[in-house]
Measured scan of single mutants.
Amino acid sequence: MGSVRTNRYSIVSSEEDGMKLATMAVANGFGNGKSKVHTRQQCRSRFVKKDGHCNVQFINVGEKGQRYLADIFTTCVDIRWRWMLVIFCLAFVLSWLFFGCVFWLIALLHGDLDTDYKDDDDKSKVSKACVSEVNSFTAAFLFSIETQTTIGYGFRCVTDECPIAVFMVVFQSIVGCIIDAFIIGAVMAKMAKPKKRNETLVFSHNAVIAMRDGKLCLMWRVGNLRKSHLVEAHVRAQLLKSRITSEGEYIPLDQIDINVGFDSGIDRIFLVSPITIVHEIDEDSPLYDLSKQDIDNADFEIVVILEGMVEATAMTTQCRSSYLANEILWGHRYEPVLFEEKHYYKVDYSRFHKTYEVPNTPLCSARDLAEKKYILSNANSFCYENEVALTSKEEEEDSENGVPESTSTDSPPGIDLHNQASVPLEPRPLRRESEIGSRR
């Protein structure tokens, strides 16, 4: 089982795998120059863009038009607004034209077009017409509009002379109601789609790998820009990579689940303020055997998904993003964004995407760390350097704002901070800030 798991979770494809794949392509008759073999020097295209759209195009789909027309309502909801407006206008105009032609044909076959009612006051002739005051196609078209929109100006009306005319008036009224219901329903469904809710759900630009509770963890940050909550919010993550099976089958995008606390339930989050999602790199993680150097040379993509129900409509929305291997910062942490004021908490989104480097973060893999092949620094050293990194950030910001350097908390000259780390230190809580992250 261990060997199978290692093969499945191998992220960085070796040169031997690339040569094996190329040999397979030639042997199977696919070596026509169009096949692409992804190596370390040639990274694959992003499968999920940063804005959440999937970078996929469908080609050679059989009976595409028929399949889309069979699900016309979903098609109308998914198309762009400009095409929705075109369909909206065409549906009414074509129905008016169709029934206008029908009423014109009825008048033509009944002989109503030969009668001039402007110079004739004989009401008996008017009563013999199928539709009064309809003696041309324009008049028939206007009567069709008046019937379907129930305008009723009063000059044109159907008589009991022709039952077919009466039937067409009733039929057009029913068709008009159906068109109204369909168009209004599609427009309302399109307006109520929770897709735009994703514009106020954000992911951090970069993911980070750092120590948390004595273990290497992959972390990324999510935030909600609205005050309205995302009900039943939960997160998922998958690692996408290519691999070759033991039988020699090439899988271009193998999807591997990344555990973010599904078993323990901590994948469900209360997204009021930005939260750091934590994936513990343990023996079940696809990143277990990867060191910093392996991450730098790897070719994979981590897709992160945030799902929840919109509070206003109770409709489920899904926000997506992805991180390539070069977008994962090893040995970094996110800057705090949640600050405790006197009577409330304040979230500073200008710090949302910012990170700071944490010294002495192990550069080895989580496996080597678990097997004690890498000796961690003293816990006080880690905490102290973590505090120094934050303090230096604040000093830089104070210097930019014009604060005198004498007010900063610099260490005395001639003292090495790293050498001082081995000395037991008193706890130094942050002056006014605390970061709330997901705790395992």
Rank of each mutant, 00 (worst) to 15 (best):
E394K: 06
N60H: 10
V337N: 04
Y374R: 12
F103I: 14
K393G: 15
F262H: 05
V86L: 15
R46H: 03
S291W: 01
E283I: 07
G214V: 00
K118N: 00
N401V: 13
V260S: 00
N28Q: 08
G29S: 04
D120Y: 00
Q172P: 01
I302D: 01
F382T: 11
F167D: 02
I72V: 10
R5F: 05
V26P: 15
N28W: 02
M219G: 01
S350Y: 06
E385F: 03
L240D: 00
Y374S: 15
T150N: 03
W104C: 14
A70C: 13
E341W: 06
S434N: 05
V77G: 14
L390I: 13
K393Y: 06
A91K: 09
R197V: 10
L90S: 10
Y374L: 10
K227P: 03
Q148T: 02
F47W: 06
F352N: 02
I184R: 01
G265K: 10
T200P: 14
R212G: 02
N360R: 07
K123D: 01
P163E: 05
I79R: 11
S408F: 08
L201Y: 05
T149A: 09
A70P: 08
G185P: 03
D289F: 04
P359G: 11
R268S: 11
W96M: 10
R44P: 09
R67Y: 04
G261Y: 10
K372L: 05
I164T: 06
F262V: 10
T355W: 01
P194A: 07
E232F: 09
I281Q: 02
D213T: 10
R46F: 01
E387M: 01
V61N: 15
R268E: 13
E307I: 04
I174G: 03
F352L: 06
C217Q: 11
E395Q: 10
D119N: 02
V102S: 14
T407G: 13
N401M: 08
C364A: 03
A139Q: 07
W96G: 07
Q172C: 06
H38L: 11
R221E: 00
S285G: 01
A22F: 05
A91C: 05
I266N: 10
L287E: 00
D119C: 01
W81L: 12
V304N: 02
Y9M: 14
E15H: 07
S264R: 13
E396T: 10
V358S: 08
P429H: 04
I72T: 15
E341L: 04
M84L: 09
C43R: 05
F141M: 10
E371I: 05
P252G: 15
I145M: 11
V347G: 03
S273G: 12
F99M: 02
S173F: 12
F155G: 14
D213Q: 15
E301W: 02
S408N: 05
R243E: 06
P274C: 11
V423G: 15
N7V: 05
K292V: 03
D17F: 05
E232S: 14
P274L: 03
P286F: 02
A379G: 11
E405K: 06
A237G: 07
A129K: 07
I72S: 15
A233C: 08
R268L: 07
V208G: 00
S365H: 00
V337H: 01
V126A: 05
G29R: 07
G62F: 15
P362D: 00
M168V: 04
W81A: 08
K34E: 15
I277N: 00
E146N: 02
G62Q: 13
I11Y: 12
N378W: 03
N259H: 09
T138G: 15
A421C: 11
L239C: 09
D120N: 01
V304M: 08
V388E: 14
I269E: 11
F73K: 15
D120P: 00
Q148G: 05
I178T: 04
F88T: 10
K36Y: 04
I275F: 11
I178R: 01
H205F: 05
E161N: 10
G248K: 13
Q172D: 01
T74I: 06
E63D: 07
S228G: 07
Y9G: 15
S408T: 10
C54V: 09
Y334N: 01
Q41I: 11
R221H: 01
R226E: 14
Q420F: 06
M188E: 02
Y344E: 06
G214N: 13
K195V: 11
R197Q: 10
T200V: 06
F182R: 12
R320V: 11
L94C: 05
G154F: 03
L216E: 01
A237P: 01
M315S: 08
S399D: 09
D116C: 12
W330Y: 00
Y334G: 01
V12M: 02
K36E: 10
E387A: 02
V102N: 03
C89V: 13
C101K: 02
P286D: 01
R236T: 10
A139K: 03
V93C: 11
L216K: 01
I145V: 07
V358E: 15
L218P: 02
T39N: 12
D78N: 08
T6G: 07
T147E: 02
K241M: 04
R80D: 15
L85F: 07
Y374V: 14
G154E: 02
L230S: 11
V48A: 08
S322W: 01
K34W: 05
S406P: 12
S406M: 13
D254Y: 04
S204D: 00
Y153H: 07
A366M: 08
K125I: 15
F262P: 06
H38K: 14
E435T: 06
Y334L: 03
S45A: 09
R44G: 14
A314G: 12
I258R: 01
D284Y: 12
A70V: 03
I295T: 06
I179L: 10
